[in-house]
Amino acid sequence: MAKYLIQRIIYMIITLLIIISATFFLMKIMPGSPFNNLGGKITPEQQAFLEEKYGLDEPVPVQYFNYITGVFQGDFGVSFQYENRPVSQMILDRIGPSAELGAQALIIGAILGIILGMIAAIKHNTWLDYSSNIIAVIGISIPSFVFAGLLQYYLAVKWQIFPVSFWESPIHTVLPTIALMIFPMAICARFMRTEMLEVLGSDYIELARAKGVSNNSIMFKHALRNALIPVITVLGPMTVSLMTGTLVIEQIFAVPGIGEQFVTSINTNDYPVIMGTTILFAVLFVVVILIVDLLYGLIDPRIRITGGKE
C-alpha cells in the first residue's frame, strides 16, 4: 500500500510539473502583450517599467525558475489587471462561492443520481426505469449553459420563483446548483443502474436468494454495497464536469467565484490569473483522482488486501 501510494504521488508530482511548465511556456509564447488592454496606448518607457516591475525583463529560464519555486510556496504572482493583487489572494477571495456551489451540486447530484439509478435497476424494464433513463440521457446531453439559460428564463425571469442572479442567500444558490448538478446526477444515475443490474444478476445474489434472504435484505445488505463501490470512480468525471460547469454557470448567474474570474481573465489576457487558476484546476483534478483510488482501496476489501501484499 505504502509503495503504491508513493508511486501514485510521484506520478502526481510529475503530472503537475508538466502542467505548470506547459502553462508557463504557453503563456510566454502567447501572442499579444499582457499590457495591451491597459486602457489604450502606453509609452515604451511605461512598458519597460511595468516589465521590470513584474520581472518580465529577466531571461525566460530565470522567470521559469522563479515561477516554479513561487508556485510551490503558494505564490502565483501578481495580476496584470488588478494592480498589485496577488493571484493567490484573488483566488482565495473567490473560492468560497465556487466551493459552496460545487459541493452542493456534487453531493445533491450524487445522491439523487444514486437513488435514480437504483430505482431504475430494481424496477428494471418498467416505466420507472424508462423515465429515469430519459432523465439521464437528457442530463448528459443538454449542455449545462443551455439548461441554465432555460432555468433562468422560466423559473426566474418569467415565473419569478427564484432570483435571476447574484450570490446573496441560500435561495440564490438554488438555480445554479440545479444547473450544475444535472450532469453529475445523470452520469451517476447511469453508472449506478448498470452496476446495480450487474450485481443483481450475479451468482452471489442468487445464492443469497437461495438462502432465503428477503428481497429488501438482498437490495440493501448484499447488492447496494457492491454496486456503490465502483460508483466512486465516476467522481473523476464528475469533478471535471463541475469545473467545466462552474466556468459557464457562474457567468450566467453572476456568481462571484473563480470560474467567473477565470473567464474574465481569459478575455483580458490576465496571464498570471489564468495560470494560477489552471494550476488550481489541475491540482484539484489530480487530487480527486488520487482520492478516488485510495477510497476504492479502502472500501473494497479485495483491493485493500492485494495492495497490502505488494
Binding site: 506520478y11 502526481m12 503530472t15 504557453l26 502567447m30 469545473m243 489541475a282 489530480v286
Partner: peptide, 18 residues
C-alpha cells in the same frame, strides 16, 4: 498515464489561447 492526469479542460483552454 501522465497525460490523462491533466484535465482536458485545461489543455483545451491553453491550446486555444496559444
Amino acid at each position: 498515464e501522465v497525460l490523462s492526469g491533466i484535465p482536458n479542460l485545461v489543455i483545451v483552454i491553453l491550446m486555444i489561447m496559444l
